[in-house]
């Protein structure tokens, strides 16, 4: 009986279609990338791919472009994550109290996260526009000098960090708010009896109890932050003069503008390793500080 056979093997019947899809669309491409990273190939039909051993990796480590991109990625992610965490936790604590309008604010916080990143990028492009943008008009009104924002090599990264902070602080805030809801009230009551003030309660009760939640939020955010693409590409395409070219954008350009598929694959392998190291580091920190077993 076919039904019997299906029932006996139900876990594989249920699992297999998804596994096959993932093998085909995820696992195979990764092996393909690993192999391609030892070749030189521009996807031309006339010139077949050529085995060049570790040459791509050597070029990568010797070239200035990779190290610049790595630095820009690190700069963008580390400053954004610090700002988003501090602001996010502060906003969460502010709005976790059961006040009128708390629910409306949660809805509004969701908007930057779900709105299409390309349109967010374009709106900020208009806000930062040197001659007509809101940013410069505001500065003029307040009597400051106007700035170049995305057009300047030195200002482009801080400007992009501001966009990311606007877009993603709500995520840290929403997760932290959910975490605050699970904190029991007894420690606060006994602290009040002992005469603790609000700051002491925050640093000795709220923060330690929230630490695991905050660290999880930071890990989730960090994984995506390192891979930021849409908002940066839609606003600057990595410019001016490569000043906002993160690793992700550099790989994209190497593959799809310069068609150096072998070199792009080598960059990808290095990017994997960096991501895995970040995840392992954050997991170690969570174990240390978050009481995760």
């Amino acid at each position: 009986m076919i039904t019997n056979w299906l029932d006996r093997n139900i876990k594989w019947v249920f699992m297999l279609p998804a596994l096959l899809f993932i093998a085909l669309m995820v696992a195979y491409p990764i092996f393909y990338t690993a192999r391609l990273s030892f070749f030189e190939w521009s996807m031309s039909a006339v010139n077949p791919s050529k085995w060049i051993g570790l040459d791509n990796y050597i070029t990568l480590l010797k070239g200035k472009e990779f190290w610049d991109a790595l630095w820009i990625t690190f700069y963008h992610s580390s400053i954004s994550i610090v700002l988003e965490t501090i602001l996010g936790v502060a906003i969460a604590i502010l709005f976790s109290r059961k006040m009128a309008g708390a629910k409306t604010i949660k809805t509004m916080m969701m908007l930057p996260m779900v709105a299409t990143p390309v349109s967010i990028g374009l709106v900020w492009l208009l806000i930062y526009e040197p001659s007509i943008g809101l940013a410069n008009q505001l500065l003029k009104q307040l009597g400051f000098e106007t700035q170049e924002w995305l057009g300047s090599v030195t200002q482009v990264m801080p400007s992009l960090i501001l966009v990311d902070v606007w877009q993603w602080t709500p995520m840290i805030a929403l997760i932290t708010i959910a975490g605050i809801a699970t904190i029991p009230s007894d420690p606060y009551e006994s602290a009040s009896v002992d005469g603790a003030n609000a700051w002491q309660k925050f640093f000795h009760i709220t923060l330690p109890l929230l630490m695991p939640t905050i660290l999880t939020a930071v890990t989730l955010r960090m994984i995506d932050l390192v891979k930021t693409f849409d908002t940066i590409y839609a606003t600057t395409q990595g410019g001016p003069n490569f000043a906002s070219q993160t690793l992700n954008l550099m790989i994209f350009d190497t593959a799809f503008s310069r068609f150096q598929f072998g070199y792009a694959s080598a960059l990808l392998m290095v990017f994997f390793i960096i991501l895995i190291v970040i995840v392992l580091l954050l997991t170690a920190i969570r174990k240390r500080l978050g009481g995760l077993e």
């Binding site: 393909y32 990808l268 990017f271 994997f272």
Partner: peptide, 10 residues
Amino acid sequence: ILPGISYLVP
């Protein structure tokens, strides 16, 4: 964890 671009090239 894997970046979307890692699938895109292959």
